[in-house]
Simulated scan of single mutants.
Amino acid sequence: MTGKTRRRMAADDRRSQLIEEATRLISEVGFRRFTIAELARACGLTRAGVLHHYASKEELLLDVLEARDRNDADAVFRDAARHGGDIRTMLDLLVRRNLTQPEIVRLYTVLAVEALDPGHPAHRFFADRWERTIGWLAEYLDGFERPARDVAIEIHSFMDGLQVNWLRDPTIDFAGQWSAFADDLFARRAVAGADTH
């Protein structure tokens, strides 16, 4: 028998289960091939049972994405506060977190590419997320010779590219590659700061 045995759950718990299973399925097959029927089987529900909680797979997708961002942000900020809270610490913690959840990284990578299509239901989500992320990074990146936004784009682009290649070739030392890049980048910040005194 495929799927899970059906059992009654509180509405919030059921939605959490649906988000968790949808995250796994979308990371495996992409959003275009993901179906409500497959999600229903994975959760031991009927298709109508899933649609009782989510009117469409597009609505579910946005909850999947927002839940992932919220969970990551909470974890990184909480850990960073215990370790000093500077931007390098936060980025190091994010890299370490991503290393422990390759399925989630794959989910975001697949969806970010699919969502380049303006007709994709997550197109606006990823466009807004890009601007928020670059803006947030830029707030912490003073002290470089280049504009903070340019440095933020460099960091984001390096990390995204590294993640794609790591998913393709898991033998890549993700943490080591990131550390070498970040050491060089933040050394330039120190030099630029010294030159202004």
Score class of each variant (00 low, 15 high):
29 V>M: 12
29 V>S: 10
29 V>Y: 06
29 V>E: 09
30 G>M: 14
31 F>E: 00
33 R>A: 13
33 R>I: 00
33 R>L: 10
33 R>G: 07
34 F>G: 06
35 T>W: 04
35 T>K: 07
36 I>M: 12
36 I>K: 07
36 I>W: 02
36 I>H: 06
36 I>D: 02
37 A>V: 13
37 A>G: 09
37 A>F: 05
37 A>E: 13
38 E>Y: 06
38 E>V: 08
38 E>K: 12
38 E>R: 15
39 L>N: 08
40 A>L: 09
40 A>Q: 04
40 A>R: 02
40 A>M: 10
40 A>S: 01
41 R>Y: 11
42 A>M: 14
43 C>Y: 08
44 G>S: 10
44 G>M: 05
45 L>S: 07
47 R>V: 15
48 A>N: 11
49 G>T: 09
49 G>K: 08
49 G>V: 02
49 G>M: 11
50 V>E: 01
51 L>T: 15
51 L>F: 08
51 L>V: 12
52 H>A: 13
52 H>F: 13
54 Y>S: 00
55 A>R: 08
55 A>T: 14
55 A>S: 12
56 S>N: 02
56 S>Y: 08
56 S>P: 00
56 S>C: 02
57 K>G: 07
57 K>H: 04
57 K>E: 04
58 E>R: 07
58 E>I: 01
59 E>D: 12
60 L>G: 01
61 L>A: 14
61 L>F: 07
61 L>T: 05
61 L>C: 05
61 L>H: 05
61 L>M: 13
62 L>W: 00
62 L>F: 06
64 V>K: 03
64 V>G: 00
64 V>T: 04
65 L>R: 04
65 L>H: 06
65 L>F: 03
66 E>W: 10
67 A>C: 07
67 A>P: 02
67 A>H: 11
67 A>W: 00
67 A>E: 13
67 A>G: 01
67 A>L: 00
68 R>K: 11
69 D>Q: 14
69 D>C: 11
69 D>P: 01
71 N>T: 08
71 N>P: 01
71 N>G: 10
72 D>V: 15
72 D>W: 12
72 D>E: 15
72 D>S: 13
73 A>Y: 09
73 A>L: 14
74 D>L: 14
74 D>C: 10
74 D>Q: 12
75 A>W: 05
75 A>E: 09
75 A>M: 08
75 A>L: 12
76 V>H: 04
76 V>S: 08
76 V>G: 01
77 F>V: 05
78 R>M: 07
78 R>S: 10
78 R>I: 00
79 D>A: 15
79 D>N: 04
79 D>H: 04
80 A>T: 08
80 A>C: 08
80 A>V: 05
80 A>P: 07
81 A>F: 08
81 A>P: 00
81 A>M: 13
82 R>D: 11
82 R>F: 03
84 G>Y: 05
86 D>Y: 14
